[in-house]
Design a protein around this nucleic acid. Structure first.
Lengths: 234, 234
DNA sequence: TGTACATCAGTGAACGCGCGTTCACTGATGTAC
DNA sequence: TGTACATCAGTGAACGCGCGTTCACTGATGTAC
């Protein structure tokens, strides 16, 4: 995307960069991100170590590229999942499914973004921009979900007083806060945050293997968690 | 607990082991678990590297000890939080608060357990036993919560059909499954799983710093998420 | 079309460093008679 | 109470290894006249 390689040399450059990143990914998946070794990548490619410095200034720049690729890949998956659906509720479920599918298909990619931060490494600002565009998919869907049924979203109801209190408290806090996603109403932001944390609650535990041996299907738990926030009015 | 040091030599041994672990923790918090270095610990203690092999067979055994300590510490925090409360709903909130407090107080401890798995390292079976005792605190609380209001936990209700469907589907699946926590009814297990994933959804994102810069209070989101599963009937 | 020049991919040696782990050892500490 | 012996904490040298990064270089590839 950032400039289709014009001359042959640039084309080749881009090609080798991709090959390096591919080998980097297989290494991240086996050794972990913090143990990523440039020399090992070079050896796998049948190339001398210093040759890599033609393509990446140093180790940190390579990791940054991997992180950005992962962010882009996840966001693309969500965008195309959302595009296919008209109904906002179905769209949200589709996005949730896309996230889990993506995470299970590329656990190392997921963990590089949402796992333990690589010590000493600071995520590039570009990553924030990408993740914001992902969040806006979710925010927009919740906006669409709230708009038509605006009339019957009454906030009383005798059932379950405590949950309403806590949610109302969060709403009030978000209404006063103008930093994040200020162009969306507080209720929409609250539901988007709820969606986001429930998604990662199930997925991160599943990817890290904390459900293994328990013998139930995490997919059903996932659907239940996501549906609860999508289908609950308010 | 595992045998109070009898003679002076054992007492000293235990003491040095603890000192090594303390230095290991400060190193994990700065460098990350996968970069834990025995030689660096020794240097910090003013001791030669090989001396550590008197106290731990190798690097893996030290990490195992750290993991077990973290599991024990978290479980103890939850147990004492639960002990103070009679009402099951309040008890669950107290446990949730204890988990978040503990995670924020010891981010590296939390991430060692629930973050990216250390590559090549397999969690010891003893850890599973500890985490099961933690889960039983939550399972018992949900059992107490369900028991008295057993009569009015009707499964119909016109509101929010989708959420009921997904939850009911998970219930049916859990009822058929006899592996995990088979001594508790499916509904209780479903709610415990929901509680567990919501807790980690908020906490893991918060600890990894994914809320920084968004400008809202994660504590309020946390309370809302936990209250939603504690206060929702069924 | 052919030649001269600039660009740039890749090499190999070298830098200083740290790692986990083993081994044979010294010297202090506790124990048994 | 004093001595002989066993136990064990800790040392220093050594093992082979891999790391990120720099440097001066060779040789191929593309460009300009």
């Amino acid at each position: 995307m950032a400039g289709a390689a014009r001359n042959p040399r640039e084309r080749y450059r881009e090609q080798v960069r991709e090959e390096i990143k591919a080998h980097a990914w297989t290494q991240v998946s086996t050794t972990g991100a913090s143990a990523l070794s440039l020399n090992a990548i070079a050896k796998q490619m049948g190339i001398s170590g210093p040759a890599l410095y033609r393509y990446f200034r140093n180790r940190d720049e390579l990791i940054t590229e991997l992180v950005l690729d992962a962010y882009r890949d996840l966001t693309d998956a969500c965008r195309s999942a959302a595009r296919a659906q008209d109904s906002p509720a179905v769209r949200l479920t589709a996005v949730a499914t896309a996230i889990r599918r993506w995470a299970l298909a590329h656990p190392h990619r997921y963990l590089l973004i949402y796992g333990t931060p690589v010590p000493g490494y600071i995520a590039p600002p570009a990553a924030t921009a990408i993740i914001e565009s992902l969040m806006s998919i979710i925010l927009d869907a919740f906006t669409d979900l709230t708009a038509p049924t605006n009339a019957d979203s009454t906030r009383s109801g005798a059932t379950a007083g405590a949950i309403r209190d806590a949610a109302a408290g969060l709403d009030a806090h978000l209404a006063a806060d103008q930093q994040w996603a200020a162009d969306h109403p507080a209720t929409v932001r609250r539901r988007a945050l709820s969606f986001w944390t429930r998604v990662h609650g199930v997925v991160s535990l599943e990817v890290a293997g904390h459900f293994t041996g328990m013998g139930f299907d995490p997919g059903l738990l996932y659907v239940a968690e996501v549906d609860a926030v999508v289908s609950t009015p308010g």
